[in-house]
Computed example of a mutant assay.
Amino acid sequence: MLDYGLDLSGVERELALPDLVAEGDELDALVAAESDWSGPTPAVGWTIAHQIAHLAAADANVVIAVRNPDAFDAVLKEAEADGGRHADLEAAAGAAEPRSVLLERWRAGRAEVAAALGEMPLEQGFPWFGSEVTATLMVPLRLMETWAHGQDIFDTLGVAHRPTGRLRHVAALGVVGRELSFYAAQLPIPAEPFRVELTGPAGETWVWGPDDARQRIQGSALDFCLRVTHRKSRAETDLTAVGADAEKWLDIARVFL
């Protein structure tokens, strides 16, 4: 089961599902008002259409994995055959569709994902890339990816991406992904606890970890989310670290392999 090795109690589907829908709706309103999706985004080789196609393809895969787990084997085999080019190939295929067709496919897929993940038992596992996941993890994962790729599109269009309380789900995944970060970097996973203190969009403080932890991260929730999704380098954020392991974590932080 893919749980990043940490407690997922702070990642709650009942809270995250409406926020996933809202995140998609906000991005939808932005791109639906744009007639030209050919503008290059910060992802090299990807236009706005590629970004939306990637989100649509991922949503379709979630629906297959939840509704027909046996059929997901074919998705895994195709991804394995494509190697590291799978996401690019999927995005390119979708981007080649007429804008109106892609937009409607993405909308339908978002609705199907919300329904599928909302109906299944919280801890019922289903297959995903690399391991098995649950709705408890997948809902915020979809929100995180929608927000991150949405950030690319907002940046491309020169529109401010207003931070909201929905970032708490992304930040929670970032915290949960600490061990994943060290694993991906092929570094020993620190045994001692970490304290993460982030300032939310409304000035509230979001906290994870014991108060007496020696390894500590502080800063804005927005910058933490931009860092763990690789939308900003560490130097571009206001994040601070205390402790050698915390310093290293900020250098290698991620929420996906």
Rank of each mutant, 00 (worst) to 15 (best):
M1D: 09
L8N: 01
G10W: 02
R13N: 03
E14C: 08
L15A: 12
L15P: 00
A16N: 03
V21W: 00
L27T: 01
L27E: 00
D28C: 10
V31I: 15
A32F: 10
E34S: 13
S35F: 08
D36E: 13
W37D: 05
G39C: 11
P40H: 12
V44D: 14
W46I: 07
T47K: 07
Q51V: 15
H54W: 08
L55E: 00
A57D: 12
A58T: 14
D59I: 04
N61K: 10
I64F: 03
A65T: 05
V66F: 04
P69A: 06
D70E: 15
A71W: 05
A71Q: 14
F72W: 09
V75A: 10
L76H: 06
L76K: 15
A79G: 10
E80G: 10
A81K: 14
D82Q: 13
D82M: 13
G83C: 09
L89W: 04
A91L: 06
A95Y: 05
E97T: 06
E97P: 03
R99G: 07
V101H: 12
W106I: 02
R107D: 01
R107C: 01
A114I: 01
L117S: 00
E119S: 14
P121V: 05
E123Y: 06
Q124K: 13
G125T: 07
W128L: 03
G130V: 09
E132W: 11
V133F: 01
V133G: 00
V133M: 05
T136L: 09
L137Y: 02
M144F: 05
E145T: 03
W147D: 00
W147N: 00
A148Q: 02
A148F: 03
H149I: 08
G150R: 04
D152L: 05
T156N: 10
G158I: 09
P163Y: 09
P163V: 07
G165I: 01
H169I: 04
V170I: 13
A171H: 03
A172F: 00
L173G: 00
G174V: 06
G177M: 08
S181D: 07
Y183D: 15
Y183G: 12
A185N: 10
A185Y: 05
P188G: 11
I189L: 13
I189R: 14
A191M: 12
A191E: 15
E192N: 12
P193V: 08
P193D: 06
V196H: 01
E197T: 15
L198G: 01
G200R: 09
P201C: 10
A202H: 14
T205P: 02
W208P: 00
P210Y: 10
D212S: 13
A213C: 11
R214E: 14
R214K: 14
F224Y: 13
T229E: 03
T229W: 02
R231E: 01
K232W: 08
S233H: 12
A235L: 12
E236W: 07
T237S: 09
D238C: 11
A244G: 13
D245F: 05
A246R: 03
E247H: 13
W249N: 02
W249G: 02
A253H: 01
R254T: 14
R254I: 08
R254P: 02
V255S: 05
L257I: 14
